[in-house]
Simulated assay, not measured.
Amino acid sequence: MKSLILVRHGKSSWKYDVSDSQRPLQQRGREDAKLVSNRYLELDKLPDKIFCSPAVRAFSTCKIFLETFNLSEKSIEIRDDLYDFGGESVINFIKNLPNGYDTVMIFGHNHAFTSIANIFGNKFIENLPTSGLIKLNFEISSWADLKKGSTAFIITPKDLKNND
Results as ranks from 00 to 15, higher is better:
I91S: 02
D159L: 00
K158G: 03
E67I: 13
I134M: 06
D159S: 00
G108M: 04
K95Q: 13
K95Y: 05
L128G: 05
V18H: 08
A55P: 05
F69P: 04
F113D: 06
I155C: 02
N137R: 09
G149E: 15
N163P: 00
I76A: 08
F65L: 10
S37A: 15
I106W: 04
N99C: 08
D81E: 15
E88I: 11
P129C: 09
T61G: 12
P47V: 04
F59I: 14
G132P: 10
L4C: 14
L71F: 12
L133E: 03
N70G: 07
L160P: 00
C52G: 11
I125N: 01
E126G: 06
T130K: 09
G10A: 13
F113H: 03
Q26I: 09
L41N: 13
P47S: 08
Y83H: 02
R30I: 15
P47R: 02
F59Q: 15
W14R: 03
N110M: 08
N92A: 03
L160R: 00
P24I: 06
L136E: 05
R23D: 03
I5R: 03
S60C: 10
L133Y: 01
T103S: 14
S53H: 01
T68H: 00
S115T: 15
S12L: 00
Y83T: 03
K2A: 14
L46K: 14
D44G: 06
E139P: 02
F113C: 11
I125M: 05
I91E: 13
D48Y: 08
I91W: 06
N127E: 02
N118M: 12
S12M: 04
Q26E: 15
Q27P: 08
L46P: 06
Y83F: 10
D32V: 10
G10T: 13
C62K: 09
I50H: 07
E126M: 07
N118F: 02
D17N: 15
I5N: 05
L66C: 01
G86H: 09
D145S: 15
A55C: 07
F120V: 08
G10S: 09
G149D: 13
C52M: 06
S12Y: 02
T68I: 06
L128P: 01
I134P: 04
L43E: 07
Y16V: 08
S142F: 12
S131R: 13
S142W: 05
F138V: 12
R28K: 14
Q27L: 14
W143E: 10
N122Y: 03
F107M: 09
F85H: 06
A55E: 06
S89M: 01
G132A: 10
F153W: 02
W14I: 03
A144I: 11
K34N: 12
N92G: 02
N122R: 01
P47C: 04
I76M: 08
E67K: 13
A55M: 08
L133W: 06
N118I: 11
R8W: 10
S131W: 14
I116R: 12
T114D: 03
K74D: 15
F69S: 03
D81H: 10
I140Q: 08
L41E: 10
Y83G: 03
K49G: 06
S37E: 11
G108E: 02
